[in-house]
Protein backbone atom coordinates (compact mmCIF):
# COMPACT_ATOMS: atom_id res chain seq x y z
CA UNK A 1 0.00 0.00 0.00
CA UNK A 2 1.20 3.48 -0.69
CA UNK A 3 0.91 6.15 1.92
CA UNK A 4 -1.22 8.99 0.61
CA UNK A 5 0.89 12.00 -0.28
CA UNK A 6 -0.23 15.08 1.59
CA UNK A 7 -1.36 17.55 -1.03
CA UNK A 8 -1.91 21.07 0.13
CA UNK A 9 -4.07 21.83 -2.88
CA UNK A 10 -2.08 25.02 -3.39
CA UNK A 11 -0.35 23.92 -6.55
CA UNK A 12 -3.19 24.20 -9.05
CA UNK A 13 -0.69 25.04 -11.77
CA UNK A 14 1.36 21.91 -11.18
CA UNK A 15 -1.72 19.71 -11.20
CA UNK A 16 -2.94 21.33 -14.39
CA UNK A 17 0.47 20.91 -16.03
CA UNK A 18 0.58 17.24 -15.04
CA UNK A 19 -2.80 16.64 -16.64
CA UNK A 20 -1.69 18.46 -19.79
CA UNK A 21 1.42 16.29 -19.97
CA UNK A 22 -0.66 13.13 -19.62
CA UNK A 23 -3.02 14.31 -22.31
CA UNK A 24 -0.15 15.20 -24.62
CA UNK A 25 1.36 11.73 -24.27
CA UNK A 26 -1.96 10.11 -25.10
CA UNK A 27 -2.39 12.20 -28.23
CA UNK A 28 1.25 11.98 -29.39
CA UNK A 29 1.42 8.23 -28.87
CA UNK A 30 4.12 6.10 -27.24
CA UNK A 31 7.70 7.16 -27.86
CA UNK A 32 7.24 10.92 -27.52
CA UNK A 33 10.25 12.61 -25.86
CA UNK A 34 10.44 15.12 -23.05
CA UNK A 35 11.67 17.83 -25.37
CA UNK A 36 8.78 17.30 -27.78
CA UNK A 37 6.28 17.48 -24.94
CA UNK A 38 7.82 20.64 -23.56
CA UNK A 39 7.77 22.26 -27.01
CA UNK A 40 4.23 21.36 -27.93
CA UNK A 41 2.87 22.45 -24.55
CA UNK A 42 5.10 25.56 -24.44
CA UNK A 43 6.05 24.52 -20.93
CA UNK A 44 9.51 25.28 -19.43
CA UNK A 45 11.84 22.30 -19.90
CA UNK A 46 12.79 21.91 -16.24
CA UNK A 47 9.11 21.87 -15.26
CA UNK A 48 8.29 19.30 -17.91
CA UNK A 49 11.15 17.04 -16.81
CA UNK A 50 10.10 17.29 -13.18
CA UNK A 51 6.48 16.45 -13.97
CA UNK A 52 7.49 13.58 -16.22
CA UNK A 53 9.75 12.10 -13.56
CA UNK A 54 6.96 12.43 -11.01
CA UNK A 55 4.47 10.68 -13.27
CA UNK A 56 7.04 7.95 -13.98
CA UNK A 57 7.69 7.55 -10.25
CA UNK A 58 3.95 7.14 -9.72
CA UNK A 59 3.88 4.67 -12.61
CA UNK A 60 1.26 6.50 -14.66
CA UNK A 61 3.99 6.80 -17.28
CA UNK A 62 6.85 4.55 -18.28
CA UNK A 63 10.10 5.29 -20.05
CA UNK A 64 10.74 3.18 -23.12
CA UNK A 65 14.03 1.23 -23.28
CA UNK A 66 15.88 4.12 -24.98
CA UNK A 67 15.03 6.06 -21.78
CA UNK A 68 14.08 9.15 -23.78
CA UNK A 69 10.64 8.10 -25.02
CA UNK A 70 7.53 7.99 -22.85
CA UNK A 71 4.35 5.92 -22.93
CA UNK A 72 1.35 5.42 -20.69
CA UNK A 73 1.95 2.88 -17.91
CA UNK A 74 -0.49 0.23 -16.86
CA UNK A 75 -1.58 2.32 -13.91
CA UNK A 76 -2.96 4.98 -16.24
CA UNK A 77 -5.68 2.53 -17.22
CA UNK A 78 -7.18 3.13 -13.83
CA UNK A 79 -7.91 6.73 -14.74
CA UNK A 80 -10.47 5.67 -17.31
CA UNK A 81 -13.84 4.22 -16.46
CA UNK A 82 -14.13 0.71 -17.82
CA UNK A 83 -16.30 0.66 -20.88
CA UNK A 84 -19.77 -0.36 -19.78
CA UNK A 85 -19.79 -3.87 -21.12
CA UNK A 86 -22.95 -5.88 -21.44
CA UNK A 87 -22.83 -9.51 -22.32
CA UNK A 88 -23.66 -10.66 -25.81
CA UNK A 89 -26.76 -12.79 -26.22
CA UNK A 90 -24.63 -15.88 -26.66
CA UNK A 91 -22.71 -15.21 -23.44
CA UNK A 92 -25.89 -14.42 -21.56
CA UNK A 93 -27.32 -17.77 -22.65
CA UNK A 94 -24.31 -19.57 -21.12
CA UNK A 95 -24.68 -17.64 -17.85
CA UNK A 96 -28.42 -18.34 -17.75
CA UNK A 97 -27.70 -22.01 -18.33
CA UNK A 98 -25.39 -21.96 -15.33
CA UNK A 99 -28.13 -20.30 -13.27
CA UNK A 100 -30.38 -23.19 -14.16
CA UNK A 101 -27.88 -25.63 -12.61
CA UNK A 102 -27.80 -24.18 -9.11
CA UNK A 103 -29.94 -22.58 -6.44
CA UNK A 104 -27.16 -20.13 -5.65
CA UNK A 105 -26.61 -16.73 -7.21
CA UNK A 106 -24.41 -16.59 -10.32
CA UNK A 107 -22.55 -13.32 -11.00
CA UNK A 108 -20.16 -12.34 -13.78
CA UNK A 109 -17.56 -9.57 -13.38
CA UNK A 110 -15.28 -8.10 -16.04
CA UNK A 111 -11.69 -7.08 -15.27
CA UNK A 112 -11.17 -4.71 -18.18
CA UNK A 113 -8.50 -2.13 -17.37
CA UNK A 114 -7.78 -3.88 -14.09
CA UNK A 115 -11.02 -2.67 -12.60
CA UNK A 116 -13.76 -4.92 -11.41
CA UNK A 117 -17.20 -4.28 -12.80
CA UNK A 118 -20.20 -6.55 -12.45
CA UNK A 119 -21.40 -7.10 -15.99
CA UNK A 120 -24.08 -9.64 -15.21
CA UNK A 121 -25.26 -9.74 -11.61
CA UNK A 122 -27.87 -12.43 -10.90
CA UNK A 123 -31.29 -10.72 -11.02
CA UNK A 124 -32.87 -13.29 -8.70
CA UNK A 125 -30.29 -13.07 -5.93
CA UNK A 126 -28.71 -10.26 -3.91
CA UNK A 127 -25.73 -9.01 -5.92
CA UNK A 128 -22.47 -8.12 -4.22
CA UNK A 129 -22.07 -4.47 -3.34
CA UNK A 130 -20.35 -3.12 -6.49
CA UNK A 131 -18.70 -0.20 -4.69
CA UNK A 132 -17.28 -2.42 -1.95
CA UNK A 133 -16.14 -4.96 -4.53
CA UNK A 134 -14.11 -2.29 -6.31
CA UNK A 135 -12.66 -0.79 -3.12
CA UNK A 136 -12.05 -3.92 -1.07
CA UNK A 137 -11.39 -6.61 -3.66
CA UNK A 138 -9.45 -8.74 -1.17
CA UNK A 139 -12.69 -9.61 0.71
CA UNK A 140 -14.45 -11.01 -2.35
CA UNK A 141 -13.83 -14.13 -4.40
CA UNK A 142 -14.21 -12.14 -7.63
CA UNK A 143 -11.77 -9.54 -6.29
CA UNK A 144 -9.20 -12.15 -5.28
CA UNK A 145 -9.09 -13.53 -8.80
CA UNK A 146 -7.94 -10.13 -10.04
CA UNK A 147 -5.48 -9.57 -7.17
CA UNK A 148 -3.94 -13.02 -7.63
CA UNK A 149 -3.12 -12.03 -11.21
CA UNK A 150 -1.02 -9.01 -10.19
CA UNK A 151 2.74 -8.99 -9.73
CA UNK A 152 2.05 -7.06 -6.56
CA UNK A 153 -1.54 -6.99 -5.33
CA UNK A 154 -0.82 -4.03 -3.08
CA UNK A 155 -0.91 -1.81 -6.15
CA UNK A 156 -4.66 -2.37 -6.40
CA UNK A 157 -5.55 -2.27 -2.73
CA UNK A 158 -5.81 1.07 -1.00
CA UNK A 159 -6.78 0.06 2.49
CA UNK A 160 -7.26 -3.27 4.19
CA UNK A 161 -9.90 -3.44 6.88
CA UNK A 162 -11.94 -6.22 8.46
CA UNK A 163 -15.67 -6.49 7.78
CA UNK A 164 -16.35 -9.58 9.84
CA UNK A 165 -14.31 -11.61 12.26
CA UNK A 166 -13.29 -13.84 9.35
CA UNK A 167 -11.91 -11.19 7.00
CA UNK A 168 -8.29 -11.92 6.08
CA UNK A 169 -6.41 -8.66 6.63
CA UNK A 170 -2.80 -9.56 7.46
CA UNK A 171 -0.38 -9.08 4.57
CA UNK A 172 1.39 -12.45 4.79
CA UNK A 173 -1.91 -14.28 5.07
CA UNK A 174 -3.33 -12.44 2.07
CA UNK A 175 -0.11 -13.26 0.24
CA UNK A 176 -0.63 -16.95 0.94
CA UNK A 177 -4.33 -16.84 0.09
CA UNK A 178 -3.67 -15.15 -3.25
CA UNK A 179 -0.85 -17.54 -4.09
CA UNK A 180 -3.31 -20.40 -3.55
CA UNK A 181 -5.85 -18.65 -5.78
CA UNK A 182 -3.25 -18.33 -8.55
CA UNK A 183 -2.23 -21.96 -8.11
CA UNK A 184 -5.73 -23.48 -8.03
CA UNK A 185 -7.49 -21.11 -10.40
CA UNK A 186 -10.19 -20.87 -7.75
CA UNK A 187 -11.04 -18.17 -5.22
CA UNK A 188 -13.28 -18.64 -2.25
CA UNK A 189 -14.38 -16.49 0.66
CA UNK A 190 -16.66 -17.61 3.45
CA UNK A 191 -18.34 -14.90 5.47
CA UNK A 192 -15.50 -12.42 5.04
CA UNK A 193 -17.65 -9.53 3.86
CA UNK A 194 -21.03 -10.51 5.24
CA UNK A 195 -21.17 -13.04 8.05
CA UNK A 196 -23.87 -15.15 6.35
CA UNK A 197 -22.70 -15.08 2.73
CA UNK A 198 -19.77 -16.56 0.90
CA UNK A 199 -18.73 -17.11 -2.67
CA UNK A 200 -16.60 -19.19 -5.01
CA UNK A 201 -15.18 -17.76 -8.23
CA UNK A 202 -13.23 -19.13 -11.17
CA UNK A 203 -11.35 -17.12 -13.81
CA UNK A 204 -12.41 -16.69 -17.42
CA UNK A 205 -9.30 -16.37 -19.58
CA UNK A 206 -8.77 -15.29 -23.15
CA UNK A 207 -8.39 -18.47 -25.21
CA UNK A 208 -5.48 -17.05 -27.19
CA UNK A 209 -3.29 -15.29 -24.65
CA UNK A 210 -4.58 -16.71 -21.37
CA UNK A 211 -5.14 -13.19 -20.06
CA UNK A 212 -7.67 -12.82 -17.24
CA UNK A 213 -10.70 -11.08 -18.75
CA UNK A 214 -13.54 -11.91 -16.38
CA UNK A 215 -14.64 -14.08 -13.49
CA UNK A 216 -17.77 -16.04 -12.75
CA UNK A 217 -18.91 -16.53 -9.17
CA UNK A 218 -21.36 -18.55 -7.15
CA UNK A 219 -22.75 -16.80 -4.08
CA UNK A 220 -24.55 -18.61 -1.30
CA UNK A 221 -24.82 -19.23 2.43
CA UNK A 222 -21.45 -19.30 4.20
CA UNK A 223 -21.70 -22.82 5.57
CA UNK A 224 -22.60 -24.32 2.21
CA UNK A 225 -19.91 -22.40 0.32
CA UNK A 226 -17.31 -23.71 2.75
CA UNK A 227 -18.02 -27.29 1.73
CA UNK A 228 -15.80 -28.84 -0.99
CA UNK A 229 -18.55 -28.44 -3.64
CA UNK A 230 -16.46 -30.34 -6.14
CA UNK A 231 -19.31 -31.13 -8.49
CA UNK A 232 -20.70 -27.64 -8.79
CA UNK A 233 -17.18 -26.17 -9.15
CA UNK A 234 -16.59 -28.53 -12.07
CA UNK A 235 -19.83 -27.31 -13.65
CA UNK A 236 -18.76 -23.69 -13.01
CA UNK A 237 -15.37 -24.27 -14.64
CA UNK A 238 -17.07 -25.84 -17.61
CA UNK A 239 -19.24 -22.75 -18.06
CA UNK A 240 -16.24 -20.46 -17.60
CA UNK A 241 -14.50 -22.31 -20.43
CA UNK A 242 -17.56 -21.86 -22.63
CA UNK A 243 -17.71 -18.14 -21.81
CA UNK A 244 -14.04 -17.55 -22.62
CA UNK A 245 -14.35 -17.23 -26.43
CA UNK A 246 -17.49 -15.10 -26.00
CA UNK A 247 -15.90 -12.53 -23.69
CA UNK A 248 -12.27 -12.19 -24.79
Amino acid sequence: MTAPIPLSGRQPKAVRSALHVLEEIVSAGPGVTAKEISESLAMPQATTYRILNLLVAEEYLVRLPDLSGFALGRRAARLALPAATTLTTAARAVVDHMRGQTRWGVHVASYAAEQISLVDPDPDHPAPDAGALARFPYAFALGRLLLAEQADWRALVRDVRPFTARTVTSEPELDRTLKAVARDGLARQCGEFREDRGCIAVPIRGPRDGRLVAGIALAGPTARIAEPNEEIIAVLRDHAARLAPLLA
Binding site: R74, A76, A77, A83, R211
Partner: peptide, 16 residues
Protein backbone atom coordinates in the same frame (compact mmCIF):
# COMPACT_ATOMS: atom_id res chain seq x y z
CA UNK B 1 15.18 -3.33 -15.56
CA UNK B 2 13.73 -2.10 -18.83
CA UNK B 3 10.11 -1.36 -19.45
CA UNK B 4 8.57 -4.50 -20.95
CA UNK B 5 5.49 -5.02 -23.07
CA UNK B 6 3.49 -5.83 -19.95
CA UNK B 7 4.28 -2.43 -18.37
CA UNK B 8 2.95 -0.31 -21.20
CA UNK B 9 -0.68 0.54 -21.73
CA UNK B 10 -1.49 -0.04 -25.37
CA UNK B 11 -4.81 1.04 -26.87
CA UNK B 12 -6.19 -2.48 -27.25
CA UNK B 13 -5.58 -3.33 -23.63
CA UNK B 14 -8.35 -1.19 -22.17
CA UNK B 15 -11.03 -2.55 -24.45
CA UNK B 16 -11.36 -6.14 -23.37
Amino acid sequence: DETTTADVLFPHRGAA
